[in-house]
Design a protein around this nucleic acid. Sequence first.
RNA 1: GUGGGUGUAGCUCAAUUGGUUAGAGCACUGGGUUGUGGCCCCAGAGGCUGCCGGUUCAAGUCCGGUCACUCACCCCA
Length: 422
Amino acid sequence: MQSIQAVRGMNDILPDQVRWWQRVENKAREVLERFGYREIRTPVAEKLELFARSIGQSTDIVEKEMYAFQDRNGDMLALRPEATASIVRSYVQHGLQTDSAILKLYQIGPMFRHERPQKGRYRQFHQIDAEVFGTDSPMIDAEMMHMLSLLIEGVGISGIVLNINTLGCPQCRQAYRETLKDFLAAKGDEFCQDCMRRRETNPLRVFDCKVEKCQALLESAPMLIDYVCEDCRAHFDAVKDYLEKLGTRYAVNPRIVRGLDYYMRTTFEVISDRLGSQNAIGGGGRYNGLVRDLGGPDVAAIGFAIGMERLIMLLQQEQQDMERAPGIFIAGLGELPRQRAFLLVQQLRGRGLEAEMDYEGRSLKSQMRRAGKSGAGYVLILGEEELMGRQIQLRDMQAKTQMVLSLDDVVESMLRIASGAI
RNA sequence: GUGGGUGUAGCUCAAUUGGUUAGAGCACUGGGUUGUGGCCCCAGAGGCUGCCGGUUCAAGUCCGGUCACUCACCCCA
């Protein structure tokens, strides 16, 4: 009989791994809450149309990477490929803009894209997502990137670079787009196959090409940064200025053009050189028109997403595994002592102590081995003799010392020992 | 969707030019004189060599297909 495998690109997170995840989630929550963000939890499935309208009909995500399916009542649904669209939908649906002028939200959870899996890219992956609604202030752009850097460094990762860029607004970008198209067309077929295609579909993405020849050709290309309008330029300058005042290191990188249609003005990515081909740990940008396009008020907004798998991958390269908290193991010898041990384990747990025992009636040697491997700090040994004398042996596994305790108040004794009072 | 690489024990890997009973380390179980862990020693258990077909007296090994994993492209966190 063939055993059933997990779905391709959707991975189990096993107990040893979960500890890393919890550490990242805890740190992320701590930082986000400190910066005034509140958690929101939206469903993993939405109407397909939501993503088509927000991310962009012609993007790869919508065209070929979406987990789309028909609901029993005929609605076309999709598993969310990213969080922003869902959060905007929820923001509009519940009229959250009336609650306060500016709203900071975050979400942590799984996203789904039907891509070919590779290192750092999976079909179910997890993101930490943050969004700010209601302000176009460059202060928020800078604060958000500052927070993103703090968060990533805060979990214990070094050697990352914050790349920033501006895409201008829809108006000035359109003008630039034409200029760039002319430039690319003038180069004829000197670009690679992919860039020739990008030239037609999304010319800005040519800048993101990894082929050296294309990068060389682009040296003389017109730069968006020279074409943006006065307002956009002033906004970008202010963002850079605030970043410097905050002491957040960054690099202006015209290649950060982002793939989603809704981005405008500030875009950014946090990149590491230790992740293989999928080198972005997190990225985001401003999307002022999106809320209005999805039927909401015309409010400015900005957000980012962190790829948790990638973050944890880096974390594991740099950090050693964490110590396991020492617990108590009870070794019972013989039927009656084991029954007493079973009750004792529950009593210790009931008082908040981490306790475990051997349920199988093994030899003491075997139980001691087991206790040693489990990382238990203490072993309580209860045999016929001890039970008869209403006593119990306490062994300190690190110190290799042993003492006799009264069985009647062993729980109180263990509480004192565990609290360090001894 | 397109390329490359790899599939042998729970994990990491061996197995002469195709050759008979597919091995090792780690992990697991038991034991090393009455009831004491990590180190050491002994023993045990654990496999349809991913799957299907072909070539051959003989296939883990060669060929074809298929599936899975993996890295990369596209794209993206």
